[in-house]
Amino acid sequence: MSDLDPNTVRELFAAVPLFAADGDAVRGEILEQSQIIEPDKNEILFIQGAQASSLYIVLSGWVKLFRETGDGKEAIAGLCTHGDLFGEAVLYNDAVYPFGAQAASEAIILRIPAEIIRTRVREDGEFSTRLMREVGQRLKALELHMEHLTVMTAPQRVGCFLLKLCRGKNRRNINILLPYDKSLIATYLGMELATFSRTLVQLRDIGVEVDGPQVVIEDAGKLQNYVCQSCSLDIVSCHTDYLKSE
C-alpha cells in the first residue's frame, strides 16, 4: 500500500491523457481497484515473456522498456514518463509482455488489472477509441525515433532528446536536469557513452551548457532549427507541446 497522499495520486491520475476525460467518480473507481507502486531506480517491473496481467500508467519518474537478445545484450524499446502507458498486451487474452520494464529512476506507477481495462474496452467505445489513439501515438513515436537513428547526426539526436525535456518551459535560458543515467540516454540514442559526452561538448556552439546532470539551453529556437532540419515532422507539429509561446 502506498503512503502517498491520496489527493496527490488523484491529481497525477487526472492529468493522464487517457483518463483525463473521465469523471472523478470513474477515475476514483479505477484507483480503488488498482495498485500504486513506487519502484526504486533499476527495479524490474516485469520481464519479457511474462504473462500480461496489468496495464501500467506512469504518474511520475521514468521507466525503461527493453528486450534482451540470446547473447545477453539489451535493446531499449522505449522510455516512458508521466502520462505514458505500457503493457498494452493486456488487451489480448493469454498474451505475454513482448518486452521487459525497469524503473529508470524512482517512480510512481499505477498498475491497473487487465480485466478492468478489457471491460472498459468492451463497454465504452469512447474509451476504446482513446486507448487505440494512445497506442497509435506510441507507434508513431517509435517510427520517428527509428528515423532519427537513421538520418540524424549524433548532436541532432541529443538535441532532440533535450528539447523533449523542455515541455512547458519558456524558450530562452532553460534549466533542465537529465532524468536518468547518461549511459541509458546514450544507448537509447544509439551511441556509446563516450560519443554522448563528446556530443554534449559539440552542442556548446548552439548554446547548450552541461554540468553533470544540469543542462542550460540558451535559446531553444536555435536548437530547434539545428535539430529539426533533419526530421520529417515540421517544428510546429513536433514541439508545440514542449515549449511555451513567446
Rank of each mutant, 00 (worst) to 15 (best):
L110T: 02
A15H: 07
K182R: 14
S183G: 03
V201P: 01
N175H: 15
A103L: 03
Q48F: 07
Y97W: 08
T153L: 12
E143H: 13
H145Y: 06
T240Q: 12
A89S: 15
K182M: 11
A14C: 08
G72M: 04
K244P: 00
S34E: 04
E11P: 00
N225L: 11
C166M: 04
G168E: 00
L55N: 05
E246T: 08
E88P: 08
P98T: 13
V210H: 07
C238G: 04
E88M: 12
Q202N: 11
G83S: 09
Y226C: 10
D234Q: 08
D219H: 03
V121T: 05
I76P: 07
E143N: 13
K164T: 13
I109Q: 04
L91Q: 13
N170I: 08
Q214E: 14
I109K: 05
R122H: 03
C228W: 07
L142M: 12
D181Y: 08
A25L: 04
Q48K: 10
T129N: 12
E126L: 12
M1D: 13
D5P: 03
R167M: 09
R157D: 02
F196K: 04
D211C: 11
G207Q: 08
G28L: 03
A101T: 09
L243H: 04
A15Y: 05
A20M: 05
A52V: 02
D22T: 04
V158E: 06
Q224G: 07
I174R: 02
H148P: 03
E115W: 14
C160F: 14
E218R: 15
A52G: 01
L149R: 09
I185N: 01
L12M: 11
E29G: 02
G87F: 07
G61T: 01
F99R: 14
Y242W: 12
G23N: 04
E123P: 05
S232H: 15
A21P: 07
D234H: 13
V158F: 02
D205Y: 09
G190M: 04
K64V: 05
Y226I: 06
Y242I: 08
D24W: 01
L110E: 04
N225T: 11
G221L: 07
T153K: 14
P213H: 15
R157L: 06
D241H: 13
Y92E: 15
R138L: 12
L4H: 09
E134A: 14
C231W: 01
P213W: 13
F99T: 14
L200H: 00
R167W: 07
E106I: 04
R133Y: 01
F19E: 02
Y92D: 13
N225C: 08
D84C: 09
G78D: 06
A50D: 15
C228H: 10
D84M: 10
Q214M: 12
N225I: 06
P98A: 14
Y97M: 09
A25E: 03
E106Y: 13
A75E: 15
A15V: 00
K244E: 14
L91C: 11
N170R: 12
I44C: 02
M1K: 13
V227P: 07
L12N: 08
A14G: 01
G212T: 00
G207R: 06
I206P: 00
T199C: 09
I57Y: 04
H239W: 07
R171F: 02
A52S: 02
Q229T: 14
C160T: 10
K169I: 06
L189K: 00
E147K: 09
L85N: 10
P155V: 04
P213C: 10
G83T: 06
S232Y: 15
L4W: 10
A95S: 15
